[in-house]
Design a protein around this nucleic acid. Sequence first.
RNA 1: GGGCGUGUAGCUCAGGGGUAGAGCACUACACUCACAUUGUAGAAGUCAUAGGUUCAAAUCCUAUCACGCCCACCA
Length: 916
Amino acid sequence: MEISSKYNPKEVEKKIYSFWLQLNAFNAEIDYSKKPFAIVIPPPNITGVLHMGHALNNTIQDSFIRFRRLTGYQVLWMPGTDHAGIATQNVVERALLKEGKRKEDIGREEFQKKLWKWHEEYGSTIIHQLKQLGASCDWRRSRFTMDSLYSEAVKEAFIHLFKKGLIYRGRYIINWCPRCKTALSDEEVIRKEVDGWLYYIRYPIDKTTCKALKKDYIVVATTRPETMLGDTAVAINPLDEKNKWIKNCRVILPILNRLLKVIEDQLVDPEFGTGIVKVTPSHDPVDFVLAKKHNLEFINIMKDDASLNENASKFCGMDRFKAREEILKALEEQNLLEKNEPYKINVGHCYRCNTIIEPRLSLQWFVKMKPLAKPAISVVEEGKVNFYPPHYKKIYLNWMENIQDWCISRQLWWGHRIPVYYCKSCGAHQLKSIDNIPNNELLTIDKKGIIVSSAKPNSCPDCGLNDLVEEEDVLDTWFSSWLWPFATFGWPFRKVLKERANIKDEFLLEKEEDIQKAKEELKYFYPTDVLVTASEILFFWVARMIMAGLEFIGEVPFRNVFVHGTVRDAQGLKMSKSLGNIIDPLVIIEKFGADSLRFSLMMLALGGSDVYLSDEKFLVGRNFCNKIWNASRFILMNIQQSQLEISDLKLENLDKIDIWLLKHLNNTIETVTNNFENYRINEAAKTVYEFFWHIFCDWYIEIIKDDFAVKAKVALYTLVTSLKLMHPLAPFITEEIFQNLKTIVKIDLGKALINNSWPEPFALKNLDIFDIEELINIVYQIRNVKFILGLANKNITLILKTSGKNFLFEANSGWIKRLARLDNIIFVDKLKRILYKSDFCEFDFDIDDVDVNNFISNLEKKIIELQKNIDNIKLRLENENFLKKALQETIQEERNKFSALIAEKAKLEELKNAFK
RNA sequence: GGGCGUGUAGCUCAGGGGUAGAGCACUACACUCACAUUGUAGAAGUCAUAGGUUCAAAUCCUAUCACGCCCACCA
């Protein structure tokens, strides 16, 4: 069998992946003889294309999964996709716009059809890409957050919370995206500091209401002058002496000439601006709070696209920013704009389209979070859910303790429809209109005529009539995602028949036994073991899943949360398409192979901290894969060429070199196992890298080259063991080599590597490997001295004097000569000249005219180094306090160190002096 | 404003009370046939700053300075 000197990932990966699929190696079924290990994938958006963040996230998961699969767990990696409300709607809207249509032109139903069609065509792009990465998910189970059965879960959750009084509908100031035309939760708003202006505007005082005037106007400071049209008061701090005089006045709102009263509230900072604030209840969150408290009128001045409405008089129809200019102009004309100064403002942006958010008064659905948060705080405090790295625990708790109610309604056409019906006869549907709210009416909602139900009811329970309309809004995408860890198993286990499914769902519970099986699977695999996620969605998703798990199942959804960092470019900027700084994982896979990508990422996947990437970072993985390939190639070719018949991997008649290697291998197995178990994946990668390359290849294989036939078994054993250790990180190449190996050696190794067994340390008697380490050190010393003397590329003869260890050198002379590039080794009793000296041996070369200057200066440098250390320790040993207070053990250690250093230095000086 | 974290070699980071570590990059040498996607050797750091605890601090504590992330109603 010919083995190419270059690994060809493209061919191999395709072949190996379908081999795994044929084996059903990813499939997870209940097996009570094994312990379960489950991970649910963070479902990527159906609009998603695999980016480096996905690659990192999923490689970590796949490595954990493959590790556990090999260690004998019954493994489930549950895959799926997320319908991603706004994101998907935006994509399809854009496509529609290319045809010159808006979604309103074709209507909700038609638009939804287009969405589903889009999902069918492109929705699984990312799934295919995950397969290219090597993800070993049980693809049969793939779920979509809009599956018919999943809808049942969403409805169940809503109804459950509603009945419990944890869902309410309320008029509230929410974040509104005027482009997406929907409400957003606080988490969906990205705050960015932008340069703006702080405008100082004069509001004249109504002289009929105010007697003792200091001035005939007051000044308010604002960054958003256009909202002044909705002002219904001005406010000062009750303790603000300098503005106290306006307390009982009324002021006149410029342009509209509305009379505003002055209110007093602690929320006002007397130090900011003039200490007087304009209050715009419908367009500012703080003012909203003030207005409720002080019973102010709410005037909405904007339409849903953030252009001004009829309440804005002559500015009606104008865009908000245009209106700002015009209003400033008008104020200036009337000499009411006192000044403006540059000012940095924190402005909210839509996380999907980056449009500036408008605080907007509207009627929305909310979940009361405090009662849900309470148990979710306890489980983390008690350690039932652990974070890696652990400091995320604090961040989580801090957030949870300050949690706000969750706005869950979205004015989108793509998503789970809120399971609510309104009775027209009871007037419930009219509450939807939000413009011109008379004072503060309807801030809480009477439940009359509002029916929460999973299907349209026949009649209104309040009035008995059947004039019902369905709620138009859909639910926040995260309201379905937070159910992911158990909804994917089929919770709430309702029978859903094919006829009722609105798409060709593959996952339906049609028969009673399906339901029973699904329930059993949940019981077996849930709670899942670890959730792997980026820190960005800790609150969006992770925290909410914990709450949902506890509320709906009564048990945490996962025991561990592994948080990895954000993927950034070499400059530290977040990778994003708009910045044009992305490194496409698919390009890396194309160029170097999936394993190179995976291994490189895992070397860098330090828990919690961000991953800085540049193209050359992927060379680590590529080079390592090349090393794995070629080392394996060497071993296999030699077994073939020497026609070795190896029938088993039992190791016997080991010599010291073998034991030296196996000791290192044992340590590696232990460390790698430990690192995987403790989610220290980069440590696992580094450990196996170090062993395979620098112990196994650099030394062992080099040492045994001359008598490979004798050592082949140990080499083969070590190779197989290493393949297992590396498989979670580099699955394709290790499986490929494993399969090649099977055709060459006549050993029953099992059918495949993927579901093979994890290695155990080899049982070694505690044999001393000191001699081998010494010999390796001597080879290193010979090379070193040769370099210093400028003899690196010359073959020379070594003249050696040992302390009774000649036999050792004789027994190992083959490899020592080869690795140190020696013609010969001559043993003598006394050296004329000494180039190296230790307790073990001393040596010289058979070359007379060496350039000693370099050698001497090198010795001097070493002596100076040693002297520094000696001085340090001497100081310590002369310190009475040290002798009095340090542990006896420590003192003895220091003394030993001291004498060792002194001896070492003496040797070097002796060498040096011999040359003078 | 509050919370969390980070500052160690040119870069990316390990480590962690008692002589500073790795990888990459760099320098020199070597195409000795598994691998130049290689090998061998080398140079490189007052462990952010200032105090404190300690016999001993890069390591623990405090403050400061930088940087990063998250949360928050300063218009």
